[in-house]
Design a protein around this nucleic acid. Sequence first.
DNA 1: CTTGACCCTGTACCATGGTACAGGGTTTAT
DNA 2: ATAAACCCTGTACCATGGTACAGGGTCAAG
Lengths: 132, 132
Amino acid sequence: MRLQVSELANLCSVNKETIRYYEKENLIPEPSRNQSGYRMYEESTVKRVKFIKRMQELGFSLREVHKLLGVVDHDDVRCKDMYDFVSEKEKEIEKKINDLERMKDVLIDLKGRCPSTKDLHECPIIETLIVD
Amino acid sequence: MRLQVSELANLCSVNKETIRYYEKENLIPEPSRNQSGYRMYEESTVKRVKFIKRMQELGFSLREVHKLLGVVDHDDVRCKDMYDFVSEKEKEIEKKINDLERMKDVLIDLKGRCPSTKDLHECPIIETLIVD
DNA sequence: CTTGACCCTGTACCATGGTACAGGGTTTAT
DNA sequence: ATAAACCCTGTACCATGGTACAGGGTCAAG
């Protein structure tokens, strides 16, 4: 069972222009077309689009996601220097997890101080993330 | 000891236009001026700008950082609904940390498969993040 | 007393990641 | 056989978060 562009877009919670945009940017493969020239997608594209969206939310740019998808697509060009690329990203993620943990603790602290304006204002937000 | 705009920018690794931009967007308070009308910043602004940059890298928009800074600025308007705002953000961060952990594991797996093209191509990237 | 390195305001421009038509064809339901 | 609901391509436009002048003032060093 193949999907038309609107069906795909709905399943991925993006709109159809975004699907076309991803195609133009080579983030998803060119789909086959039916007799009328309509794009017909494989079901696997749903997961691929969701993956792209989530990676973006995690802080990867579309260019970076494209690079990483080189592995999925068995593309030797994009797989070149993959080790270095991945090592770099891994380090960034590590640091990010660390800071997000700290930020989470601040937010929990902050919540505990609400709604008392007085307590709230004493919450050390900046200091938790930035040290001298 | 007060800082001129370029000094502040250098200490924060941003450029001076960004500082002016943040001022326009009310992310940093209007600095005092010297006799020539030059902006003179308190040293505490360094940490504030660094905080803004890092929060952005962690996935917060400047509007969200602005809201959060309401606590630091003792601003009752921005502190309204702070509990709900923070609860929402906390949930997002939680999910993000989770997915980043998973992504980190994928990247480590991926690294271990390099440079063998054959092994590399078998790495399940999308599946680790997106389930049916 | 001028050259270089600062600063000012204002406005234009840029990249990223979309979003929204316009102008036209197809397909299904009535 | 015609309206509604799809699809197509192409191009314009949008928000966010800056970045880069232009045109002009200030100040310290030689």
